[in-house]
């Protein structure tokens, strides 16, 4: 177990290194010049070169990347070109909001997805089953931008049940969580349905029924735990989906998380922020996957980590 963990951690570091190298290289070859954005239109060529030199952007790629890595291993994510603040400060200020949204979204997608999947499995082959599966398909395919605006319009503007965007209270959290959760709910409902259908076919369920147990007991004591655990283990893998989702959802709802930060930075070629958010997201994804793998043997003792 310890050896496995060590190996995975080394892998994780290598992945992060790879991500940083690729992102840095992509930003390096970008034709847009961040110095021009900083210097402004009134700047003379000399001012531009001055700034370029101060930021070390006149150095060859290897030196620039080396410097970045050197800072990185010391926990320094650099300084935003345009916000003139440490990237770590900016991310730290926004990370709690993104994490909160992620928790909200996980609760939403599990509650929605598992219920839908369960009902669909029990009503297999009926119109309800088909309707739910079509619903999940729509949930998976609908652009989050559209879902978000739709929810905003119906529940915040028309019905006034929730505030129109913003941050600060539980009611602010609901709509963005649902928007983000609908996508995952689509996946989960399908996984839950097939897992449940699978379990219900197993011999031990037939035995339980044959023993004369109540339907509810069979379902909730015997079938559900077996079907639900593998599904829940997927949450770790979901984090990648969340990371791409928050960029859109946070913008629609004015949610002050790192997705919004990334979006603004991309538009303005603020390379240190883009790098920082990319690395933080990559970290989250790698950790999520690792977590998913570590949890699996506890859920299903047949699986052993090697």
């Amino acid at each position: 177990m310890a050896a496995y963990l060590l190996r995975r951690l080394v892998q994780a570091v290598l992945i992060l290194f790879g991500v940083s190298l690729i992102t840095f290289a992509l930003l390096y070859v970008l034709p847009a010049d961040p110095v021009r954005q900083i210097a402004g239109r009134a700047a003379s060529a000399q001012t531009v070169e001055n700034i370029r030199h101060q930021l070390g952007l006149d150095q060859p790629f290897v030196v620039q990347y080396g410097r970045y890595l050197l800072g990185l291993v010391q926990g320094d994510l650099g300084r935003s070109y345009l916000q003139r603040t440490d990237v770590s400060t900016l991310i730290a200020a926004r990370l709690p909001a993104s994490l909160l949204l992620m928790v909200g979204a996980i609760v939403c997608e599990l509650a929605l997805g598992l219920t839908m999947g369960l009902v669909a499995a029990l009503k297999r082959g009926t119109a309800l089953d088909q309707a739910l599966m079509v619903g999940s398909f729509v949930g998976v395919s609908a652009p989050q931008f559209v879902v978000g605006l739709l929810l905003l319009y119906v529940f915040a503007v028309r019905l006034s049940w929730f505030p129109i965007g913003g941050y600060g209270s539980f009611s602010h959290l609901v709509l963005p969580s649902v928007t983000l959760g609908i996508l995952g709910a689509g996946w989960y409902s399908r996984m839950m349905r097939s897992a449940m259908v699978d379990v219900l076919r197993q011999d031990f369920i037939r035995t339980a029924r044959a023993k004369g147990l109540k339907r509810a007991t069979v379902l909730f004591r015997h079938a559900l735990p077996n079907a639900i655990l593998p599904v829940i283990a997927m949450i770790g893998i979901d984090i990648g989906l969340f990371m791409s989702g928050i960029v859109v959802v946070e913008s629609v709802f004015g949610w002050p998380g790192i997705g919004q930060l990334a979006w603004q930075a991309i538009q303005r070629v603020d390379i240190p922020i883009i790098m920082g958010v990319t690395l933080v997201s990559a970290c989250a994804i790698v950790l999520g996957n690792l977590l998913a793998d570590l949890v699996t043997p506890f859920i299903d003792p047949r699986i052993k980590l090697q």
């Binding site: 503007v157 129109i164 965007g165 913003g166 946070e250 629609v252 709802f253 004015g254 002050p256 919004q260």
Partner: peptide, 18 residues
């Protein structure tokens, strides 16, 4: 000054007096 609000959301909030 509330930051991070899409213009369309800001307009809806204006219509509600927020």
């Amino acid at each position: 000054f509330e930051i991070g609000q899409e213009p369309i959301v800001a307009l809806l909030r204006l219509q509600k007096g927020e």
